[in-house]
Simulated assay, not measured.
Amino acid sequence: MTPADRPVLERLWLLFRHDMSEITGALPDPTGQFRRERLDVTFTDPGRSGILAHLESDDAPPSPVGFALVRGLDGPTRVLSSFFVVRGARRSGVGRELAAHALASFPGHWEIAFQDANPPAVRFWRAVATDAVGHVWTEEHRAVPGRPELPPDTWISFTSG
């Protein structure tokens, strides 16, 4: 991802945070924006990166349909800090392709969090882990830092590449 991708990523970020608000209860601020620290730091921290996903059409330019943001590239563990595919592209395989591309682009030890209250995410991330490493992955629940009112996140861990 390059700085030129930022305007597209900022628009997709709003859709992502809106989708997640159903799970997290997060609301926009008075300007209509959702928190975006994870997005902003992706463009300034060398230990972070991102990948944009596009879908091609015969009669139109490629459409941006999702993203994967990764942190920990300067340490022993890569963490998928944010992952999103627009609703119109879900169940097309683009999400699995994006996840596989992220894992292949940054091989090493991975941790991926999701919420049990989001059943499609539960199925999706278990399938991604199995696609990547077979059944050599672990799953555990961890409290959300600074958010004791939230149920714990589920974390999948494995080593790819």
Rank of each mutant, 00 (worst) to 15 (best):
residue 97 E to M: 11
residue 88 G to V: 07
residue 2 T to Y: 12
residue 64 P to H: 06
residue 23 I to C: 08
residue 33 Q to G: 07
residue 43 F to C: 04
residue 13 W to G: 02
residue 133 V to F: 03
residue 142 R to D: 00
residue 112 I to D: 06
residue 51 I to E: 00
residue 18 H to M: 13
residue 122 V to F: 01
residue 100 A to L: 08
residue 29 D to C: 07
residue 65 V to G: 09
residue 137 W to A: 02
residue 101 H to D: 10
residue 38 R to G: 06
residue 91 R to V: 10
residue 46 P to C: 08
residue 114 F to Q: 12
residue 104 A to Q: 11
residue 100 A to F: 09
residue 110 W to P: 06
residue 139 E to I: 05
residue 99 A to W: 02
residue 150 L to F: 07
residue 81 S to Y: 06
residue 65 V to M: 12
residue 153 D to I: 00
residue 155 W to F: 13
residue 33 Q to R: 14
residue 13 W to M: 03
residue 123 R to T: 14
residue 41 V to K: 01
residue 136 V to M: 02
residue 9 L to F: 00
residue 10 E to I: 00
residue 42 T to H: 01
residue 145 P to M: 05
residue 152 P to N: 01
residue 93 G to Q: 10
residue 28 P to M: 05
residue 18 H to W: 12
residue 54 H to Y: 15
residue 138 T to S: 15
residue 76 P to E: 15
residue 119 P to G: 14
residue 110 W to R: 09
residue 98 L to K: 02
residue 68 A to P: 04
residue 27 L to I: 02
residue 157 S to C: 10
residue 40 D to I: 02
residue 128 V to A: 13
residue 3 P to R: 09
residue 160 S to E: 03
residue 7 P to T: 10
residue 43 F to E: 06
residue 10 E to C: 02
residue 22 E to H: 07
residue 98 L to P: 04
residue 138 T to F: 02
residue 116 D to M: 11
residue 69 L to Q: 05
residue 43 F to V: 01
residue 39 L to H: 12
residue 56 E to N: 08
residue 101 H to L: 01
residue 105 S to E: 03
residue 7 P to N: 08
residue 66 G to Q: 11
residue 54 H to V: 10
residue 1 M to N: 03
residue 116 D to I: 10
residue 91 R to W: 07
residue 21 S to V: 13
residue 155 W to V: 14
residue 111 E to Y: 12
residue 34 F to L: 11
residue 136 V to N: 05
residue 140 E to M: 10
residue 108 G to Q: 09
residue 38 R to L: 13
residue 49 S to F: 04
residue 134 G to E: 07
residue 138 T to N: 02
residue 69 L to H: 00
residue 79 V to S: 15
residue 139 E to S: 12
residue 115 Q to A: 11
residue 100 A to M: 12
residue 24 T to K: 03
residue 59 D to M: 03
residue 30 P to K: 04
residue 82 S to L: 00
residue 87 R to E: 14
residue 60 A to R: 15
residue 75 G to P: 06
residue 70 V to Q: 00
residue 134 G to F: 06
residue 105 S to R: 08
residue 149 E to R: 11
residue 47 G to A: 15
residue 76 P to F: 06
residue 80 L to S: 11
residue 48 R to I: 00
residue 30 P to H: 10
residue 127 A to D: 13
residue 135 H to C: 01
residue 62 P to Q: 14
residue 135 H to L: 03
residue 36 R to Y: 08
residue 54 H to L: 14
residue 125 W to I: 05
residue 30 P to I: 05
residue 145 P to Q: 13
residue 12 L to Q: 04
residue 146 G to I: 09
residue 40 D to V: 01
residue 91 R to L: 08
residue 96 R to H: 14
residue 18 H to Q: 15
residue 8 V to H: 00
residue 62 P to E: 11
residue 146 G to W: 08
residue 126 R to F: 02
residue 44 T to A: 14
residue 121 A to F: 04
residue 157 S to P: 12
residue 151 P to T: 02
residue 106 F to C: 01
residue 46 P to M: 09
residue 138 T to I: 01
residue 96 R to M: 13
residue 161 G to C: 08
residue 149 E to A: 10
residue 35 R to M: 12
residue 118 N to Q: 07
residue 36 R to H: 15
residue 111 E to A: 15
residue 51 I to Y: 00
residue 130 T to N: 03
residue 108 G to I: 09
residue 97 E to C: 06
residue 32 G to E: 07
residue 12 L to G: 02
residue 152 P to D: 01
residue 117 A to F: 02
residue 36 R to K: 13
residue 49 S to E: 08
residue 93 G to L: 12
residue 83 F to N: 11
residue 42 T to S: 09
residue 59 D to Q: 14
residue 24 T to Q: 04
residue 143 A to W: 00
